[in-house]
Design a protein around this nucleic acid. Structure first.
Length: 788
RNA sequence: GCGCCAGUGGCGGAAUGGUAGACGCGCUGGUCUUAGGAACCAGUGGGCAACCGUGGGGGUUCGAGUCCCUCCUGGCGCACCA
């Protein structure tokens, strides 16, 4: 049975046009897919569309069209652009997430997750993007701003749907170790995001009340140094001592400070009893306490924490040293011996942590605790163009998740997108229904699912896009994980973490045998291009520029142009190269060659006119080569072709595609230098097969021309005996420095060859009257002579 | 601040601890052509040379671009994470 091989590129968002980044991505995948097909593997290589999402809605408003029309026509256009690239894709597996036959099965999965306790609804303080008028997941907030709009994110309390990704926090973390074929960088980013830390949870009794404040700390050993408590402004305790008006004012004050590291605090009336010492410590609302981490409350130990130290200084709070150090070392955050801590004196950090936890446990005021930074995934989006969440609400506020038999909940087409916010809210005809189960009036959920939900399982749906259920268990067990997943590193956390969560959740719900969705992850680098602008800071497209006497000018008005650094291609900087134009001018093969030739695929590729031109020259050169009549071979011709086959194979498997291009040059340099023309010999056939994955159109046309054949047999098996070199160039070193080399046969006799070596002038001159102390002969590799 | 990755000719980049600079671009000289974003030939790390050369300094080794320590520089990610 042939080996399955699932090769997948991250599917595109149908924004309108294919860009060069897509081309590079899909060429890399296409080379793999073509190679594996020649190897006889059962290759799956599908393509689809990540078709829901905000840009469609925004474009619809701007261009007075409909998100669906806009999206579907973009898909059509981009598909025809992809087809121009003649990629070897399984178009029969195509899917678009905005189509009913995709998202209705996603609604089924939502129900599955709900029934498994992995989807739930709660009031939560969420990240609100005021421009897009929707909630964002934590992962989508960057530096306090929305990842798409760049708008300052606001905190808002809304009832939202969540997926319980925290349930898998530990497994998501541990299984990263199993992903040997993932870049270390991505794994590190995910580890940091999950953010596991060991510590303790300690209960602080609120003075005079029968209530406690829970606090997570990684440094319970410093408990004797606690001189204040600080809580987030959103902590429940705040509501007990301040009015809403006061709280709002504090929030505003904090927001004004945002971005700054300046500490700000407000003391409240309540205080806590120190859990061990009989004293009261004040409670502050502080701007540096995160409400999304731990319990949203900390105890401040100013002597041994920088932030607490700053805060204590500003508000003149006591600083009690509990780890031995010089006073000028404060705040001292390193390991040391405990002082001023009756139970812990003389212990080091780890010993003290162990001991204090035992004590807290015994006193029932605390325990060991592992905390994760990762929060549950908020999936509700207050937008129209997404997958409807299959839930209805009754007038009493209760809700019901629909049965699978009640699906699909279709996204209505006729909506008015002109208003602010979610158009579904105003669509009473769609929204108001009578519940078929209770016969009571009810309203549909108007939030839609985050589009990252769509992309969390599309690789599963690809296996059978026509099935009348989300997927087939047997098929998933057989074909997953995806063997090679290729895409941009910008999805290192979001998409890749969500997909891993989905795979694990579905595994548990459907008893799948798959733990991880992507066995190998390859992150390709971006494409950059020089930027150009006039003195007036107008960006200019490269094709608008002419070079005169080494200076650059804008063609239309001879305005001088300055060349800037190479940056990621972007429309705003006008340094974009359009794939359509390149394909028309240079053809598919030259485009493919350039996509892989100048840099390793995981690094940045700088677009240059010389680069694409030399790629085209290579294509012409190969064409010319095969048009010349056959000549005799030389002794080493077959060996060189074998080496070529071997290298290409090795380099495709390693994703060292830039080296594949070098291999092609090396082969043709040799053949032309030696005046060996292979025309339609057996060796030509081998060469054509090997270049087929890389430059398929040329390879196919040469195959037709030379062999009158329209298909290729399998990848050539390598004659390994031919790869062995018997003649070698043996380097001779003295003290590890190269002096000369000699031609010899492998398996030489050390004594005999040394006699010859000592006769060499270069060696003789070096040795002179000195004594030979030692000779290191690494057989068939190198000889190193040590002299006195 | 923390973490990760990287630093090799004019440029992009090659080098299982064993001849540093494969291959390409660019450049120099020449050939061919009515012309060519073409092709062909020769050359191209530095230095006249002995020699010197993989960010700096140490170390391990017969031998280091590669391994270890340390510092510097750059990129990316996270960032008041208790």
């Amino acid at each position: 049975m042939s080996k399955k091989n699932y090769i997948l590129e991250m599917f595109p968002y149908p924004s309108g046009n294919i860009h060069m980044g897509h081309v590079r991505n899909y060429v890399i995948g296409d080379i793999c897919a073509r190679y594996h097909k020649l190897k006889g593997d059962d290759v799956i290589h599908p393509m689809g569309w990540d078709a829901f999402g905000l840009p469609a809605e925004n474009a619809a408003i701007q261009f007075k069209t409909h998100p669906q029309d806009w999206t579907l026509s973009n898909i059509q256009n981009m598909k025809s652009q992809l087809q121009k690239l003649e990629l070897d894709l399984d178009w029969d597996k195509e899917l678009a997430t905005c189509n009913e036959d995709y998202y209705r099965y996603q609604q089924e999965l939502f129900i599955d997750l709900y029934n498994a306790g992995l989807a739930y609804k709660k009031d939560a303080l969420v990240n609100w993007d005021p421009v897009d008028q929707t909630v964002l997941a934590n992962e989508q907030v960057i530096d306090g701003r929305g990842w798409r709009t760049g708008a300052q994110v606001e905190k808002k309390n809304l009832s939202q749907w969540f997926f319980k990704i925290t349930h898998y926090a530990e497994e998501l973390l541990n299984d990263l170790d199993k992903l040997e074929l993932w870049p270390e960088k991505v794994k590190t980013m995910q580890r940091n995001w999950i953010g596991k830390s060991y510590g303790a949870e300690i209960k602080f009794k609120i003075s005079g009340e029968n209530e406690y404040l829970n606090i997570f700390t990684t440094r319970p050993d410093t408990i004797y140094g606690a001189t204040f408590i600080a809580v987030s402004v959103n902590h429940p305790i705040v509501k007990k001592s301040l009015s809403n008006f006061e709280i709002e004012n504090i929030k505003k004050e904090f927001e004004r400070m945002d971005g700054d590291k300046e500490k700000l605090g407000y003391k409240i009336k309540l205080s806590c009893d120190h859990p061990i010492l009989s004293k009261k410590i004040p409670i502050y609302i502080a701007n540096f306490v995160l409400d999304t981490y731990g319990e949203g409350a900390i105890f401040g130990c100013p002597a041994h924490d920088e932030r607490d130290f700053d805060f204590a200084k500003k508000y003149s709070l006591p600083i009690i040293k509990v780890i031995d150090c010089d006073d000028n070392q404060l705040p001292f955050t390193e390991d040391g011996l405990l002082v001023n801590s009756p139970l812990l004196n003389g212990l080091n950090k780890n010993e003290a942590i162990k001991k204090i936890i035992l004590f807290l446990k015994k006193e029932k005021i605390g325990d060991e605790k592992i905390n994760y930074k990762i929060r549950d995934w908020g999936v509700s989006r207050q937008r129209y163009w997404g997958c409807p969440i299959p839930v209805i609400y009754y007038n009493d506020g209760s809700y019901r998740v629909l049965d699978k038999s009640e699906l699909p909940v279709l996204l209505p087409y006729d909506v008015n997108l002109e208003g602010k916010g979610n158009a579904l809210l105003n669509l009473s005809g769609w929204r108001n229904i009578v519940c078929p189960k209770t016969n009571q009036p009810a309203q549909r959920e108007t939030d839609t699912l985050d589009t990252f939900v769509d992309s969390s399982w599309y690789y599963i749906r690809f296996l059978n896009n026509k099935l009348s259920k989300p997927f087939d268990v047997e098929q998933v067990n057989e074909f997953l994980p995806v063997d090679k997943y290729i895409g941009g590193i910008e999805h290192a956390i979001l998409h890749l973490l969500y997909s891993r969560f989905f795979m694990k959740a579905l595994r548990d719900i459907y008893s799948l045998k798959v733990d991880e969705p992507f066995k190998q992850l390859f992150t390709q680098g971006m494409i950059t291009h020089k930027t150009y602008r006039t003195k007036k800071n107008e960006w200019i497209m490269p094709k608008e520029i002419i070079s005169k006497d080494g200076k650059l000018f804008r063609i239309k008005d001879s305005e001088p142009v300055e060349e800037g650094p190479s940056e990621k291609m972007s429309k705003s900087k006008k340094n974009v190269i359009e794939p359509d134009e390149i394909l028309d001018n240079y053809g598919i093969d030259a485009t493919r060659i350039f996509m892989i030739s100048d840099s390793p695929p995981d690094r940045e590729l700088e677009w240059t006119d010389e680069g694409i031109q030399s790629s085209k020259n290579l294509i012409h050169r190969i064409e010319r080569y095969f048009s010349k009549p056959m000549t005799d071979l030389k002794d080493d011709t077959e060996k060189n072709v074998e080496k070529f086959v071997n290298n290409i194979e090795k380099n495709i498997l390693n994703f060292s595609l830039n080296k594949c291009v070098a291999d092609i040059y090396t082969l043709f340099n040799y053949l032309e230098k030696e005046n060996i023309y292979l025309y339609n010999s057996k060796l030509s056939n081998k060469i054509l097969i090997c270049i087929f994955p890389i430059i398929p159109t040329l390879s196919i046309s040469l195959n037709k021309y030379l062999f009158n054949s329209s298909n290729f047999k399998e990848w050539p098996s390598i004659k390994t005996d031919l790869l062995i070199e018997d003649e070698i160039n043996l380097p001779i070193q003295i003290h590890g420095k190269l002096i000369t080399t000699i031609q010899t046969k492998k398996g030489y006799d050390e004594k005999i060859i040394l006699d010859d070596i000592y006769k060499l002038d270069k060696i003789k001159n070096k040795i002179n009257d000195k004594k030979i102390v030692k000779v290191i002969n690494v057989q068939d590799k190198i000889i190193n002579i040590i002299i006195s």
